[in-house]
């Protein structure tokens, strides 16, 4: 079982604000996932390559040929704030 501090740390990294009830639920669920991983770890996996992709497809590549970009008004249409033809965001230092 992972502790509450670990849950809070992971939530902070994911920019999630959890209530204390939610923290408890996440603690249960995340622990369940890790237990599953531990169960896999306990197996003899010598010679089994790690699975990074579940479909056996390789080398999907695209030729280096330009395609039209969005008109700027279109690109900026959903922006919360438009400043200087750009996406306005809170000040970052």
């Amino acid at each position: 079982m992972i502790d509450e501090n670990t849950v809070r740390h992971v939530a902070r990294l994911a920019r999630l604000r959890l209530g204390s009830d939610e923290e408890k639920v996440m603690q249960q669920e995340l622990s369940g996932i890790l237990e599953h991983i531990d169960a896999i770890r306990a197996m003899d996996l010598d010679g089994v390559p790690p699975t990074t992709h579940v479909i056996a497809v390789e080398n999907v590549l695209r030729p280096d040929v330009p395609r039209p970009s969005l008109p700027r008004e279109e690109a900026l249409r959903e922006a919360d704030d438009v400043v200087d033809e750009s996406f306005g965001v809170p000040r970052m230092d």
């Binding site: 280096d64 395609r67 970009s69 700027r72 690109a75 900026l76 033809e85 750009s86």
Partner: peptide, 27 residues
Amino acid sequence: STQTKMFCGCELSFGDPPNTHTCPVCL
């Protein structure tokens, strides 16, 4: 210095007006 971006067909540019080389992928 390719013609296009890493994962979409938007053209690379330097010094062009802002947000004129974007698409749903790179946005």
